[in-house]
Write a protein that binds this DNA or RNA. Structure first.
Lengths: 232, 232
DNA sequence: ATTACTTATGGAACGCCGATCCATATGGAT
DNA sequence: ATCCATATGGATCGGCGTTCCATAAGTAAT
């Protein structure tokens, strides 16, 4: 299975396939029809080829979707300004950029995985690590803290965003929340003291606020854990 | 599609199916053969019935897997002592219990979803909320903070644990980490200043420590954000 | 040009899956 | 004994990921 090699920049036919072209078309298809809408047959048809040809450039569907998700992660970097801020502010901007990118491509949320092997996942973790290294934190904690922040960003984004892509397109987010709130109201307050008095918060909440709430708690904890240096 | 109703506790035949029996068998199959190993055909065979019969009790595969994951979440509650501790300690114990339960059933990690609708997801969020309400936090922030913590627990657990279930069973975790570390070492230090000097940390890290590192940052931030009450 | 070889393509076929259909069984109520 | 809602399970459908392989296209040497 000899993935596409460096390939001489010249030559090849005009309509040549490539891993990049395939992944790009996959992203478009995923955006348009969701995860279940991506099939090798349909993808091949859009590229005017057969399903078999795709396997020359891509090992299998898992790899294809992983590459597509990594490309979405790459979009996030375009939005965030090149570093050069305080660590806290830089981490916050980075996190929000990732959240927003995944928000625009909900199918990708559940496919950005932790152990960084793909190009943009590597970039993300490196940027986080570089920012963390600027805090007063002892060096031996940099790795654990950086990965923790990386896990928060991708993991919590996935929790918030992924369910939306599973939502029946006929049911709106509002309708779903209202319906869920109603179910919470019917619970026994003796068993669920908290939920039964929190239904209006559920109905009115904003997804992005929820993400930043936890993020700020985390970064806050980072400040007080680190040596109190001038909060850049 | 008339799910199983209350059903009179008496009667029925001895070998009667039920949603609980089906979900239980699904969990066993998922534990044994992973997510792709669960099929309606195989599940039906194990229960001495046909695939069609299962659909009387369960709407489709998505629902079945969701119910199975929720059952795993239920296991977590068995391990954690009934509340009655300080908020911080209680939240920590709860979080770790969930992590450990998912650790034992890796396939479930990517299926515990945020908007709580299933039984045990509801229980989890309610417990978190009850503990959060004991802090000095103003009431209007209880919902956002509770859901943030809930998102952290399930989302970050998923990030850490889920990749493991995708790992080729012939490749050990150690081998995978060593291999990934090698790839990091080959990166250009100019582009990846952090990763290239962090490879040994990657190789030696402990997954559970990573989970608790972020968790403690979060809870730490919670303490300093809340009115400074006696840290229970 | 011709040849020989690697790289790449694309359509057909394989095996399996989720889901549906429907003829049949079961057991409580009348 | 009869009836009917509840429940079962085997056959079947359409579609999927993947593999196979005959063939095309491009490259390099003669």
């Amino acid at each position: 299975m000899p993935r596409t090699r460096g390939r001489a920049p010249t030559g090849g036919r005009a309509d040549a396939l490539s891993r990049e072209i395939i992944v790009g078309a996959a992203v478009a298809l995923l955006d348009e029809r969701g995860e279940r809408g991506l099939t090798f047959r349909l993808l091949a048809k859009q590229l005017n080829t057969g399903p078999g040809a795709l396997y020359w450039h891509v090992a299998n569907k898992d790899e294809l979707v992983a590459l597509a998700a990594d490309q979405v992660l790459g979009h996030a970097f375009a939005a965030v300004p090149r570093l050069e801020e305080g660590a806290g502010a830089g981490l916050r901007a980075l996190a929000i950029a990732v959240f927003d990118a995944l928000d625009r491509h909900p199918w990708a949320a559940s496919h950005v995985t932790a152990p960084a092997t793909l190009a943009n996942a590597l970039r993300l973790l490196d940027r986080i690590g570089t920012l963390v290294a600027r805090t007063g934190l002892p060096a031996e904690r940099h790795f654990a803290v950086s990965t923790a922040i990386s896990y928060y960003i991708t993991g919590v984004s996935a929790q918030i965003i992924a369910p939306r892509s599973a939502l029946d397109s006929t049911t709106s987010r509002d309708a779903f929340l209202t319906q869920t709130a109603e179910r919470w109201e019917e619970l026994d307050p003796a068993d669920y003291p908290f939920l039964t008095r929190t239904t209006t918060d559920l109905r009115d909440h904003d997804d992005r606020d929820q993400f930043t709430t936890g993020l700020d708690l985390l970064l806050n904890g980072l400040n007080t854990t680190a040596d109190p240096r001038p909060p850049a």
